[in-house]
Computed example of a mutant assay.
Amino acid sequence: MLYSDGILKIILTEKTNGICFLCFLLNRLKKERIFIIIITDNTIVKNKIKHKNVKYINDIYLEVLKESRNLIHKGYELLSHPMYSSIKPNETPYRSIILKKSNKLDTNSVLLIEEAIYISNKFQNNKQTPNWTYNVIDDFRVIDLDILSNTLERIQYIL
């Protein structure tokens, strides 16, 4: 019988070999140390996410994407999509991206981050980010933190 939960596929035999294999995989994942880094330009993220390695970029949204690209070329892999949410790159000044250390260049991450940089540039060239009021800017910070927090919860569940 084939069991699939979208992440792991296990073939269960007449005995419990499949279940033993699942236990082995879960134990292995728990023992592996996964180095996660968050790249952000959001001061709330910098101040509230203390249990993770956070690299704060005191610059524009696009620089967060470029720093993420630099890390991807050094062997990191995207764990969050660089263009998450329905907020356009020229609408929000904030972005937080989660990456993990890998032992090889992840071509999917390279393609995603390059496309995100291209799209961000395209949107900024069409229309610059407005000079939002403080309250609106604070709302964007909170939205970014909320999306990041939910993503971190899901990643912890999977890892």
Rank of each mutant, 00 (worst) to 15 (best):
M1I: 13
L2S: 13
S4R: 00
S4C: 12
S4T: 12
L8W: 08
L8R: 04
K9S: 13
K9Y: 08
K9T: 14
I10R: 09
T13L: 07
K15P: 04
K15G: 10
K15W: 15
F21E: 02
F21P: 00
F24Q: 15
L26D: 07
R28Y: 10
L29Q: 09
L29C: 06
I34A: 06
I39W: 12
N42I: 03
T43P: 11
V45Y: 03
K46V: 05
N47T: 02
I49P: 04
K52C: 03
N53C: 05
V54R: 00
I57N: 03
I57G: 04
I60L: 12
Y61S: 03
L62H: 09
E63T: 04
E63L: 02
V64Y: 00
V64T: 12
K66H: 09
E67V: 06
N70C: 08
E77G: 08
L78Y: 09
L79E: 04
L79Y: 12
S80C: 05
S80Y: 00
S80H: 04
H81T: 06
P82M: 03
P82Q: 05
P82A: 06
M83P: 04
M83N: 06
S85P: 01
I87C: 08
I87L: 05
I87R: 01
I87Q: 02
P89L: 00
P89Q: 02
E91A: 08
T92F: 10
I98T: 05
K101W: 00
N103I: 05
N103V: 04
L105G: 01
L111N: 09
Y118S: 09
S120E: 13
Q124L: 14
K127D: 00
K127L: 03
Q128F: 15
Q128A: 07
P130N: 06
W132A: 12
Y134F: 03
V136D: 01
I137H: 02
I137L: 12
R141M: 11
L145S: 11
L145F: 15
L145T: 04
D146G: 12
L148V: 08
L148C: 04
N150V: 05
L152S: 02
I155V: 10
Q156N: 14
Q156S: 14
Y157T: 11
L159I: 14
